[in-house]
Structure formats: C-alpha cells, structure tokens
Design a protein around this nucleic acid. Structure first.
Length: 183
DNA sequence: CAATCGATTGCCT
DNA sequence: GGCAATCGATTGT
C-alpha cells in the first residue's frame, strides 16, 4: 500500500526538495491546484535566515507546530507567503512554497490574479492564486482547507539547487530548489 | 510609544 | 534595471 500522505519527516532541506512535484490545492470559491516548482527550506533557531531564529513568537508560532502546519505571514504589508512546517513539533523548521504552475482552476486563478500569465511564479503570487491568506495560518495542509497532495517527483536532472532568495543573512545556504523551466 | 524594515510584486523609465 | 506600495511584528528610545 503506497503512502498517500506527503512525507514531511527528515531534514528540512530534504523535505523541501521532496515537495517539488507535489500539489497545493484549495476548494473555497472553486477548485484551484498548483504543482510546486520552487521551494526554500528554513531551519529553526539555528538558522539566522529563518523567522524561527529568535524563537517562538506570536507571528511564527505555526512554524513550531506539528509537520503539516501551515505558516502564513504578511510580507511587505501587501503579500502573503505560505510555508509548511516540517520535522518534529517544536523545531521551527518549515518549507517556503515559492512558486508553482497552475494545473487546475485556471480561470479562477486568472480572476484572482487579475492577469493571464505569471500566475504563481513567486511566493506572493502563489498565495493569491490559491486564495491563501492569514486566515489559513495554523491550519494543517494534511486536512485542508489548503491541502498538500503527493505528486510525481520531477526528473532529478531538472532540479536546480541554489542559495535562498531575498534574505540578507546566511544567504549562502543553498536551500532553494527549483524545477528548471520554472522560474 | 515611535521607528524600522522585510522569505515581494508590479509598474515605471 | 529601479523603485514605490503598504502594514504589522519586532526592535529601539
């Protein structure tokens, strides 16, 4: 019997890479699904680039939840960014879902985004495409309303690894994974 | 209590 | 390629 639930155990950078090819889906107001093509891993209190670095706070509490807990935070006062907590409860490790390709609910996504392309090729764009907001912070991607589902892993030859984007500290840690042809 | 600054995006030149 | 938009958690006085 194959595992039907995403495996979120193990080192966070391994989980991040594993999430490539998985799907993120929402059903409210219509169904929209994105295949994940870009992710970044963030560690817990030992990772200076992570929101969890300074310990548990009101904002980042979801990062410290059990694996599968959705951590949604506001970025630049405008956008929402979605992460999935991984590892053991209390570690603060999470994977930032940075980008993907819309495979279901195309017209719904286009309406939400107000444009016909570049629908989910960035963390803020992806959350807008799926209708994810702070309301979903703390929910589990294993139970919905925002669900993570297993999908076929991409060709390993197409997976690129690079430093994380948009951060000032510990920028050299190569914990960003992208499927080539994506961003 | 006031100041600071993003794990970004989209429109401008 | 440059930069404004926008807001709340975090940090400083």
């Amino acid at each position: 019997m194959p595992l039907v639930v995403p495996d979120l155990s193990g080192p966070v950078e391994d989980v991040a890479r594993r999430l490539l090819g998985h799907r993120l889906r929402t059903d409210f107001g219509g169904t929209a699904t994105v295949v994940i093509e870009e992710v970044e891993a963030y560690g817990g209190v030992d990772d200076p680039a992570s929101h969890a670095y300074r310990g548990r706070t009101a904002r980042n509490a979801s990062m410290f939840g059990p694996a599968g807990t959705l951590y949604v935070y506001r970025s630049y006062g405008i956008h929402w960014c979605a992460n999935v907590a991984t590892g053991s409860e209390g570690t603060g490790e999470a994977v930032l879902i940075r980008g993907g390709r819309v495979v279901e609910g195309m017209e719904l996504v286009r309406a939400r985004r107000g444009r016909r392309d570049h629908l989910a090729d960035g963390p803020g764009k992806l959350t807008q495409a799926l209708g994810i907001s702070g309301d979903h912070d703390g929910t589990s991607v294993l139970a919905g309303p925002v669900r993570l589902e297993k999908g076929p892993a991409p060709d390993p030859a197409l997976v690129r690894r690079s430093p994380r984007i948009g951060i000032s500290r510990e920028a050299e840690r190569p914990w960003r994974f992208v499927v080539a042809g994506g961003r």
